[in-house]
Amino acid sequence: MSVAETAFVETQAPAPAPKPNKVKPRRFLLPLLLPAVILLALLSIYPLGWLIYSSFHSVSLAPGAPQEWVGGDNWSRMIKDPLYWHSWGILAKYSIVSMALEVGLGTLLAVLLNRSKHEKVLVTLMLMPMMMAPVVAGLLWQYLYNGTFGWYFWFLESVGLLHGGTILGDPSLALWAIVVVDVWEWTPLVALIVLSGLKLVPKDQMEASWMDGAGPVRSFFQVALPSIKASLIIAVLLRFMDNIRIIDHFIALTGGGPANSTKVLPLFLYEQSFSFFDLGYGSTIALTLLLVTILLGKFVVTSFEEREPKRLKDEGEVL
């Protein structure tokens, strides 16, 4: 057993098999559990019911306006709506590209940070963007990209990559500009997740691989990569989840324009619901988005459990 594994077991001491208890656990644990569960049910199951109900109604927010049953109208409208499918496409494009960049750059950073003497300081500095409110990050980058007084625009022009024009006003550039913001804010998170995986790679294995004549790159793919695969999956899932969850960058930077080129699905939903106040149609779109989230969530939970050390099955008490 390697050093890393031993350390892990020490901190995660498994609980022993349950012993007879004096008070019935049910009477003790249930009151502890219920308040949170009831609160969460009120805030999630009731709204979910409302969503399903509204997706079959025409919902107007005018006071006293009746909610009309419209059957499957919202659903068939959604399926026929080219903008709906277009926004899925943009979301997929955005997520895949930003994730590929974040995973690539993040893994590289993690490998380099792994043995750095200044790991603590560097990690702290790299954490900073993640603490910034995404909408503020969006505003800040909108300023940096600005064609007249943005420093990044000035820099790109000065090195000859741009010749006038705009960044965020150009339908072929805007989405990639937002990808860069996402990469700036979240690559460090991917790096830190991978770093935690790298710490579990047995060092002697790494060295043995090098002794056998494999270069650093081949050793990385043969020895380190299988060990950090679980970390990479978690990083990708978490990032994808957040790309669906948070649209603040888009709202601050482009609002979906120019020419819908940055209209990701959650932004499309936001617009239908809170610019046009078409909550019935909004509910329909929201349900499809939730469905995808739940499927993803299933993957997340499974991959988290795979990485957790196996706990004894009979730990704790029967409720």
């Binding site: 709204p47 669906i244 969850r245 969530g297």
Partner: peptide, 15 residues
Amino acid sequence: TRMAPVVAVTVPLYA
């Protein structure tokens, strides 16, 4: 619940 898209949660909560 933690992973649900913010906008999708906002629609019913708003109403």
